[in-house]
Design a protein around this nucleic acid. Sequence first.
DNA 1: ACTGGTGATGTTATAACATAACAAGATGCC
DNA 2: GGCATCTTGTTATGTTATAACATCACCAGT
Lengths: 159, 159
Amino acid sequence: MPHKISGFAPHDHTSCIHSALQAAENACAERGAQFTPVRRRVLEILLESHRALGAYDVLARLTTEGLGSKPPVAYRALGFLVEQGFAHRIERLNAFVACTHPGATHDPAFMICRACHKVAEAETAPSVLTDAIGDSGFSIEQTVIEAEGLCPACQEGHA
Amino acid sequence: MPHKISGFAPHDHTSCIHSALQAAENACAERGAQFTPVRRRVLEILLESHRALGAYDVLARLTTEGLGSKPPVAYRALGFLVEQGFAHRIERLNAFVACTHPGATHDPAFMICRACHKVAEAETAPSVLTDAIGDSGFSIEQTVIEAEGLCPACQEGHA
DNA sequence: ACTGGTGATGTTATAACATAACAAGATGCC
DNA sequence: GGCATCTTGTTATGTTATAACATCACCAGT
């Protein structure tokens, strides 16, 4: 079964950013969550690239822009975005990436390119893990599925 | 397809420890790697429970035993054990767990119980991730597959 | 307008995790 | 002995993350 994958393929990035922001704004309105300037700006920063940024990278940006200078400011905004499903935490990198499937069901798999550091997101069938684990009686609440390797573009560079 | 799962089920833990140590010793002998006292002791510490320990937890134990007191001592030993496949790093927890399938092919999935903090390990079919990701052209080199939830015993406690 | 609740932000301080860089010892080989 | 290699010891620092408390902005009820 093919899955929607985003992050590596060339695309209209401006509209990619715009639609993600729009989706976040709409979702916040629906849920009564506040899409404040710091939260919005942090999402914009993540959206600039399909790469994972550390909390302190984000914080540095906020600081130059006068939006906050202490770690909790960045961690709170990132925590909010993750809670709302607008961003994801990449455990392998201790870093955060904007969600490229806003609105979709969420417990995605990530592909992390070790060369260009882009991160792509793939929807997974809910069964991906239950196939491996299901017969153990363990009840899954959250999953972390991350693969590290080379994206298509970087494979060519190494060929 | 069922997979070997270990960590939650009751078992003879003494022999579990013993066989893991034996396997590590044999593997080192074969590979010409040195199974030094610190490395052995760290593996023993991890083997005491099927739980993930932070590097500093391990270090604290080493310190009380006079085997080293500075972070690099613990990180080096843990790094060695992971390299050799005698232990695994659990990204979600920034912690380390003894391997329960020593010798087997290795890129396992982990189940982390949020109640009792035990960690079980399941062999995964190599296809688990390629099913989700395969058609993207991404070449996988390493994977992180971790599920958080409740182990069978802890589910009963909550019922 | 005042009061009090709620949620967001500001700030201090510190906890927790990790490694770079260099010194010193152990081992084995020639 | 002299050299190479691997391991361990140590200092110092870098990186990631959160607890705790103060303040502010907003809104609803009176």
